[in-house]
Design a binder for these strands. Structure first.
Ligand SMILES: Nc1nc2c(ncn2[C@H]2C[C@H](O)[C@@H](COP(=O)(O)OP(=O)(O)OP(=O)(O)O)O2)c(=O)[nH]1
Ligand SMILES: [Mg+2]
Ligand SMILES: [Mg+2]
Ligand SMILES: [Zn+2]
Length: 634
DNA sequence: GCCGTTTTCGGCCCGACTGTTTTCAGTCG
């Protein structure tokens, strides 16, 4: 039920904003995704040419690193800080410099001349890597990009592929299947919202737990790290009888196709709904190392394994062993070939590290920080004392969407969440349809309505036993107009306890203009919070550009707070920006932006974003008691 | 090609599975 209400809501939001996408794509020379793609192509080309595997890995790492970069690489280049990006050194930095200055990299162009363009198209087919792609292009003489996939498909249908050396009937079929997956857009690269993936994983885990063979089953990979979007569903299964557990899982009715199946370790399937599911099986005595491995991230694992190697230890999902029979670790040399770990904490401790929360395992500086015993004590959901961004169904006649639940319903829900305070911040009345006087009246009526509702809800007999929040705040989410003006006037602002300002239009303004607009919008003393600060919609559109140094600086000096909006397709401020804000000392507020009581619990996703941004209790203002909060908010 | 509170040279994670192979390369996680 939770699920449906959100999906319906997402749908209606998406249709509203779809027309904006095209406008947003313009005016950038090279996006991070485009640069990442180029580096990926370089890695593939080197692989085909049998170059040094470490150089290939370096390009792959650089590519991933840019995909995850906190800012536009172009801006980082402008600031002369390319070297700060992990995995980017002197050499790649100079190539990127050339790219931004001239629009191309001669060295790469030369390299690509050696590879038929069709190869890079074939790489999109699952199961087809650089070597296979190159062989196909050469042997079938399909070199052009144009119609490459269609021509490959025809060749396969004619049985031309199995004639190639080292190919056969099965690999030909695999390629045809791969093409069909590609055509249907069911690729792993097509990611899903964390919220959606959670629900999917829960269903599978419920099914698994019904088996007597299954002791535990856990969502891992990006799901456990709480990444905003998730590529596939990774689940580990703890069992004493892997064979039986595998058999049991294969009876799950939503499986469309088994891609890979091992004896007792792994099953990989595709569901009818198109998502890939990876299961790893492990026994209780070594389940800890499986949790560690399968949680990732890949880069975290690599760095952790390199860290261990310096101590002559080798890590895997099976445990820890010595590289040589060295005396560095007596425990391992004495008869034991590999040391088992029931839980993860001991696995990290054995390496001399504090246990690292999954949200931090992105291969940045978490290992070093853990080694120094300096890991942050991350904010937790139970520390959240209130929600400051809710849309009730009180009709303020806005031009954006109305909430679906009443003030009373939301108050009761807030009580059951143990909140101390709640802030109602509906969209402002539409400017085009109302006079200033009408806008004022509407806002005034809402203020009175909230107060009445609060007391009447409190007094209702059937609500006895439910503890309502102690404080209800009257707020608004106010549009920042393209010129930076607010959509309500001074008089209205003065009725409010505090207000949120958000950008809901003209997303394609240039960085400087947008920054000025936002700062102007924030400048009124009643405006305390910048709502969904980047305006991104996950899987749909990038956010607008802002000069973050200016924004952070302004917030710090003027007592303004950046929202972490928990709405599942926003998660905005994004985790990487949260990390920067925290470092800067800017305080944040985690809000649900609920339009329905069922959505109030989604605030947990905002908490996950905060945690991924290394935020502690002190960084989050709605972890304060009301007294503390009122000092800075009211 | 990247990287460095014991290194600016000499290291670089480790394993499952598949198909086509008589012993393993390629792809993926
Ligand atoms: N050691 C090691 N572990 C890996 C590697 N690739 C993947 N893993 C581990 C860590 C990953 O988090 C986990 C699951 O792999 P996935 O490809 O599903 O990645 P992840 O779930 O992190 O991201 P995703 O949202 O699926 O794209 O497996 C690798 O190359 N080496
Ligand atoms: Mg995954
Ligand atoms: Mg996976
Ligand atoms: Zn909004």
């Amino acid at each position: 039920m939770l699920f449906n209400s959100l999906i319906i809501h997402l749908d209606c939001r998406m249709s509203q904003s779809r027309c904006k996408i095209r406008q947003m794509e313009k005016n950038k020379s090279f996006s991070n995704q485009e640069i990442a793609k180029i580096l990926e192509k370089v890695a593939a080309a080197y692989e085909i040419l049998d170059k040094d595997r470490f150089r290939i890995a370096a390009y792959e790492r650089a590519s991933v690193s840019i995909q995850h970069a906190t800012s536009e690489v172009k801006d980082i280049w402008d600031d002369d800080k390319l070297d700060d990006i992990p995995g980017i050194g002197k050499s790649i930095a100079s190539y990127l410099d050339e790219l931004f200055r001239t629009g191309k990299v001669r060295h790469f162009e030369e390299l690509f001349k050696k590879i038929p363009p069709s190869v890079f198209i074939f790489l999109d087919i699952p199961g087809v890597g650089p070597k296979t792609a190159y062989t196909l292009a050469e042997k079938l003489n399909i070199r052009e990009e144009k119609n490459a996939i269609a021509r490959l498909k025809t060749a396969a249908q004619k049985g031309k592929i199995e004639e190639i050396e080292n190919f056969g009937e099965k690999s030909e079929l695999d390629i045809l299947n791969g093409i069909s997956v590609l055509e249907k857009g069911e690729l792993k690269t097509k990611r899903m919202l964390l919220f959606y993936a959670d629900a999917l994983a829960d269903e599978i885990i419920d099914y698994l737990k019904k088996s007597n063979e299954v002791i535990r089953a856990d969502p891992l990979g990006s799901l456990r790290r709480k990444v905003a979007t998730v590529g596939d569903i990774d689940i580990s299964v703890c069992t004493n009888n892997p064979q039986k557990a595998i058999e049991y899982f294969l009876n799950y009715k939503k499986i469309k196709e088994v891609i890979s199946r091992g004896e007792e370790s792994l099953v990989r399937v595709v569901l009818f709904s198109g998502q890939q599911v990876d299961l790893r099986f492990s026994t209780p005595e070594k389940y800890g190392s499986m949790l560690q491995y399968f949680t990732g991230s890949k880069q975290h694992n690599i760095l952790l394994r390199e860290f261990a190697l310096k101590k002559d230890l080798s890590l895997s999902e099976y445990g820890i062993k010595t590289v040589k029979n060295l005396k560095t670790c007596p425990e391992l040399v004495e008869g034991l070939k590999i040391k088992n770990f029931k839980d993860e904490e001991n696995f990290y401790n054995f390496l001399g590290l504090e246990w690292i929360p999954p949200e931090l395992r992105e291969g940045t500086e978490e290992i070093k920080t853990s080694l120094n015993g300096k890991l942050p004590k991350l904010i937790e959901l139970k520390e959240i004392k209130g929600d400051l961004h809710l849309h009730s169904n009180f009709n303020l006649e806005p031009s954006h969407d109305l909430g679906q639940s009443s003030v009373g319903e939301m108050l009761i829900q807030a009580g059951s969440l143990n909140y101390e305070y709640l802030g109602f911040s509906e969209h402002n009345p539409s400017v085009s349809n109302h006079s200033e006087r009408e806008i004022y009246d509407l806002i005034m009526r809402k203020k009175e309505f909230i107060e009445q509702e609060y007391y009447s809800t409190k007094n209702k007999d059937y609500e006895r036993g439910i503890k309502l929040p102690k404080q209800v705040l009257n707020s608004l989410e106010i549009d920042i107009k393209p010129n930076g003006n607010l959509a309500v006037d001074e008089k209205c602002l003065n009725i409010l306890d505090y207000a949120i300002a958000s950008v809901h239009s003209s997303f394609n303004q240039k960085r400087e203009k947008m920054t000025d607009r936002v700062l102007k919008g924030l400048s009124h003393p009643k405006i305390k919070i910048l709502g969904h600060p980047t305006g991104r919609l996950l899987l749909e559109r990038e956010g607008y550009e802002l000069d973050w140094d200016k924004i952070f600086d302004f917030c710090l000096k003027n007592n303004k707070f950046l929202e972490i909006n928990s709405w599942p397709n926003r998660l905005d401020l994004p985790d990487t920006k949260v990390k920067e804000a925290v470092k800067y000392g800017v305080k944040l507020v985690i809000n649900s932006d609920s339009h329905h009581v069922n959505q109030m619990a989604y605030l947990q996703y905002g908490v996950s974003v905060a945690r991924r941004g290394w935020a502690e209790k002190k960084d989050i203002i709605n972890s304060l008691s009301f007294e503390g909060l009122s000092d800075i908010l009211l």
